[in-house]
Design a protein around this nucleic acid. Structure first.
Lengths: 175, 175
DNA sequence: GGCGACATGTAATTAGTTACATGATTAT
DNA sequence: ATAATCATGTAACTAATTACATGTCGCC
């Protein structure tokens, strides 16, 4: 009955009080979602499953088509802690821009330049989004630490594009 | 008939000549595998599918339980280029150590320290593995660029642990 | 001629995504 | 009251992982 990371995350968002699937999804999107992708469907689907396993219980709204609020159970709390203490699962990396770059020689330089520029724009937008967020997390040091990682990562991508990838393609584009 | 990134990658490794599934898997493991996780099973499974679609053909070993060599077709080459030019798919990030850190307040500090130290060890080992690899890729600038990213990323994780995450937990462990 | 490592392939299972079908609420 | 938005939930599908069943080859 070991949890996986996605299930563990959902459970973790019930620690601070009963919530609906929608609410959990929103909160994930604004926080861990930046580094642990979870879809809305997963949240909606895991919750009844967790209920069946007794880790969560429906606090209100059992009826058909009705808004359901879930609360974590004592057993759920234990399962969460057990999962967390296990340590991180093996990381599976999937960084699309590197895949494209890897095959860069097969692509017209102009197109690769466009793709890199687009990624750069996305990543600087992400950086802007993080702006000022650190202050809000002053009293949540662990969450703040993950934000710090996010900032450093976005900067890494930006700088790698500027210093490594883009210069590689400069020759062929000279626009 | 659009390819996905995993299929595109498999096809990309046939550009340089006919290969077996095993061979493709090995090559992926030593290169793009560092930033685009692909399992052996996927490679074995995609290949017959690609053959059915005419993007690849069995060059030798059609028989049951026999070693099959695949070659890319002209159509396959086109499909690959089309896929590559599309640009990167949406990125889905999954960084386990951040998930654990995010919930760090729920974990005994000593345990979190262990987990961070372990991750640090993994990432420095990764860094060691990259050592000297750059020289081998002198004539493959695009692959070299992805290696450079890998190095910077590993350094980022190491430094983030040293400068941000570990200090956060220092108080509680003082071992 | 048997043991271990290397290699091959498929099947079963689990996880994740996309598409769909409604419901409730709020502003006009 | 009605359109627009927000919210809910499920179903169908696709992708990815894990487990299994064999096979081949080199060597001792």
């Amino acid at each position: 009955m070991g949890l996986n990371a996605t299930t563990g995350t959902v459970l973790g968002f019930l620690l601070s009080g009963p919530r609906t699937a929608w609410d959990i999804d929103q909160r994930i999107g604004g926080s861990v979602g930046h580094f642990w992708n979870v879809t809305r469907s997963q949240v909606y689907r895991e919750l009844p499953q967790l209920a069946a396993d007794g880790l969560v219980r429906v606090q209100s709204g059992g009826g058909k088509g009705e808004r359901r609020t879930y609360a974590i159970t004592a057993q759920g709390r234990m399962a969460f802690r057990r999962w967390l203490a296990e340590g991180p699962p093996a990381e599976t990396r999937r960084i699309p821009i590197l895949l494209i770059t890897f095959f860069g020689a097969e692509l017209e330089p102009g197109r690769l330049a466009e793709i890199l520029d687009r990624t750069r724009a996305e990543v600087t937008a992400e950086l802007d989004g993080y702006e000022g967020l650190g202050a809000l997390l002053a009293d949540r040091p662990f969450e703040r630490a993950t934000l710090e990682f996010g900032i450093r990562y976005a900067e890494l991508v930006r700088d790698w594009i500027d210093e490594v990838a883009r210069p590689l393609v400069e020759r062929g584009t000279e626009n």
